[in-house]
Computed example of a mutant assay.
Amino acid sequence: MNMIKVRPARELRVAFARWAVAQTPKVRTCSTNEFEVPPRLFTYAPEELLIGSIVDGHRYRSPLEDERLAAASQVRTGIPEEPLPLLPDSAYGPDAVSLPEPERQLAATSPATARAAMTAAVVAVDVAAANQQPATPGAAPSEGEGADIVCGVCTRPFTTKRGLDMHRRQAHPEA
């Protein structure tokens, strides 16, 4: 009989073990942190004990998580001439450039103003990047506090050599 291997999340192991020994027949362990659950019994396992578990080598995704992901992935359309909602800071990547406050306020007023403000911000970033000296290929950049290391291909600045190396491998594999 095929068994389903369940490795509960660390903080739920004791609770899962209590549930397992309360079953008839008892659910067996197959390693120090993994249980073998019969398929007919797996469907009765409490959802809160399975969240965060590894089931047959895959992370368990609860139906509640699926509903949240489905709701978040629905396409939302804007209404012409209405401002877009502001996003929290956590929605932006670590290297995102924030608009200065006047442009941010303008961007919230109308789509046309938002496009103009974004264009101005992108041009300002491009001008700032163009004014920096590109790194010479093969030269060891300094790792000092706040030192800017610039990509020799696209002039994107980095604060560490490791970040620059990762960028070159991903963005410029041919270089």
Rank of each mutant, 00 (worst) to 15 (best):
A121K: 05
L164T: 02
P111R: 12
L99Y: 00
R10N: 11
I54E: 12
T109G: 11
L64Y: 11
R76V: 10
S142R: 03
V150K: 01
A147E: 04
Q170E: 12
V125L: 13
A70R: 13
A128K: 07
G138P: 02
M3V: 11
A117S: 15
R115W: 02
N33W: 02
P102N: 06
A121S: 15
A135M: 04
V125C: 09
L87P: 00
R10S: 10
Q133Y: 02
T113F: 09
A175K: 10
T43P: 04
N2E: 10
L64N: 11
G144I: 02
V150L: 00
L49A: 02
S73V: 03
F158R: 01
G57R: 11
R156G: 00
V27Q: 00
V21T: 11
E65Y: 10
P137I: 03
P102Y: 08
P111D: 09
F35V: 00
V123R: 13
P137S: 02
V150Q: 00
D148Y: 05
A45E: 00
T155Q: 14
P141D: 01
A70C: 06
V27T: 06
H167M: 09
V127K: 08
A114I: 06
A20P: 02
V123Q: 15
L69A: 13
Q170I: 15
P100R: 14
P80G: 07
R156H: 14
P85F: 03
A71W: 01
L84W: 09
R7E: 09
V125S: 10
W19E: 01
G93F: 07
P94H: 15
L86T: 13
R40C: 07
E47V: 10
S73L: 08
A20H: 01
V97W: 05
G138Q: 05
K26H: 05
N2V: 12
T159Q: 14
P83L: 06
A108K: 12
C154I: 00
A15V: 03
A117C: 15
S90T: 15
E47W: 03
F16C: 06
T160L: 04
S31T: 04
I79N: 06
D89H: 13
E48A: 10
